[in-house]
Nucleic acid binder design. Structure first.
Lengths: 205, 205, 205, 205
DNA sequence: GATGAATGAGTATTCATTCAT
DNA sequence: AATGAATGAATACTCATTCAT
């Protein structure tokens, strides 16, 4: 299985455009789509409101650009993490660590946004669906490799990838919910161990 | 371990107030906090805007009321589901089913909202933290029971409860992401099986 | 010259009605007519909003009632002060002191209100005009007495009364403007002396 | 004694901004701060509501700008009036005339506003205090000159300036109170004469 | 005499967006 | 490439007031 990077990356990007995207990324992660105001974005990026419209058609276009850039970055990071090892289980470990780090440090945008989507936002749904491979496919690939190598059970890889991402996401909330200073290492270990072995008592089964 | 239901439920509630809360629940689930407009809420609930402010101090108060009511309901449903069985594994199954149903049918509000919280929204964080037991404690209790009865491994129950909720939530996204018509039954089975046994190949380990 | 007290005092007054008038008096003095909110008034008076409408037809009626009660009180106080002496100059002194005290302690309402009147508020203008004697006539009467007794120059008593009230009012502002702790005594002395002798140098004239 | 004009006048001002300030000046004078509606202001100034917020941060900022501009103008006019003569008494006469004209024609804003200030509006108080010299200092300067030249008695110039302004203001109310068509000339003469000579009978003293 | 519920019209303010420069 | 000026529509929220009880 070959994972294709997204192809239509914006060909040229000026520093101003990047500044806007950076600011938008932060604001989106903190306040969601509806909570992102073009005024705040102008302030945050240090540019005039009208300048944003010089670079992006409208708020939706800007939003999609942030999403595309973020997804590309996430995809690249995760693929790089997976490529740093050979054994499926090591790849998985590296990917989980990378994923958690991304969520914590840069607050990946997609999750912040999915929840806001009503059923009316068809375009957004389609866009995200068209690119969901960035998030799940690298993980699915690792699972497939592990199954092929006999290390993992023959689970449904697509669903399991989604479940793993869900488990990871839960700990970003966890941090918010518990205000905990739990070291990331412990979260990674817990998640990996649970994902690998489940909660069932081996002696029992 | 005894789970106490939240005690300070609003003592009296008029039909109008409930209508507002119902409408707000729907709108919040579909559009998030920032995307919830008081005008739409008035329209949806069939009352005048000013009437909303007769019953709730402001948008934030309304929001917290929705959250509180929803959490109370979720807690009650989940506890009821757990109480319908005796074996830990059956309880877990019932709870997962209930949880998925709740997420699908009524679109539980809390998840829609957590992502919108910036670091400045101290009050909201505290509120949710003070009531997070509604979501996680019933599950944690089942895990504890299972461990005590030797059926589950001695995992960290709190973290595992969070992970399970994360897995479940992932499938609400999954539906959006894949537009799938996958029967709920399949999702429940997958989630339970993964949570119980992990992906590791028993022969291997 | 005989000063007639206003005749149509509200015949009966319940404690609740008085509580409303008291609260309204304070709020009016602090925020003016436009700044007086019925909601605040309800809170301040400890009664429900609807109760206010049980006692007063509307905001305007309430306002006029406050005005009437205040004017009656001011008039009574000033007349009492004037009656405590026999010599015109002593009466004047007592009245100035009383007037300053009233302005400082209870913040007479009328002045707070006059400035808000646009040209459209015909009824209010007429109401105040019809009762302006409460404020100015007692002073004018003293001036007339002083002139008759040869103690004062034959100035225009009506205009001079207005001027004196203006001078007194200026010192309520003065307190605000300068944040001063100047003793009231000094303000009284200054005002009386200036009103009596002016600033002209006798030797020069 | 040299009177310094306020220095921090807004450096640049567009016609639109001036139009807003002009309209606000009128509305404030007629309805006070609480009675000034941004909608009316938009209508009156011929601009959109949002345009007002392009030029001013909020209603308070707008209000302070009106105040500042008005005070600067009043100060300039009064200083100009004072400079048109050399003798203290002539300066005083010119200033009183100017002051009355300003109050009548443009309805100086400050007086309309001072009465609305509750004790909570600290910023406004400080702002006005910081600029009160615009109103009183020119008059105080004239009094000082007159005293130095032996024409006026050695009265407290600050208090006397305040008193004079109070006397003048009283006649704006006077017009409202009496609906009089009294010529301005008569008001000026009365005020000047009273301020200069008081009401005391020279023969008596 | 008193009030909780309800509201239409209004409040100040912010929204995403356009356009001339 | 960049922006100040401008705006119609929307935002959250408050207003004075009514009415059934």
């Amino acid at each position: 299985m070959v994972i294709m990077p997204p192809s239509e990356i914006e060909p040229t990007s000026t520093p101003s455009k990047e500044a806007i995207l950076d600011a938008a990324q932060t604001l989106l992660a903190n306040h969601g789509y509806a909570g992102l105001s073009m005024r705040d974005l102008a302030t945050e990026s240090g540019l005039a409101k009208a300048t944003i419209y010089h670079h992006f058609q409208d708020k939706n276009d800007l939003f999609l650009s942030v999403l595309a850039r973020d997804m590309t970055m996430v995809h690249a990071q995760i693929v790089a993490a997976a490529d740093s090892s050979t054994a499926a289980i090591d790849k998985l470990s590296a990917v989980v660590r990378t994923y958690i780090d991304l969520m914590r440090e840069r607050r990946t945008v997609i999750m912040s946004v999915l929840r806001e989507m009503g059923q009316d936002e068809q375009i957004l749904c389609e866009f995200i669906q068209s690119r969901r491979h960035c998030y799940f496919d690298p993980i699915a690939a690792i699972l497939e490799q592990g199954i092929a190598e006999g290390e993992f059970r023959p689970v449904n890889v697509e669903k399991s990838a989604i479940s793993l991402v869900g488990m990871i996401n839960a700990f970003v909330l966890f941090r918010v919910l518990t205000n905990s200073d739990e070291p990331v290492e412990a979260l990674i270990d817990h998640t990996l161990e649970l994902f690998l072995y489940g909660i069932n008592n081996r002696e029992t089964s």
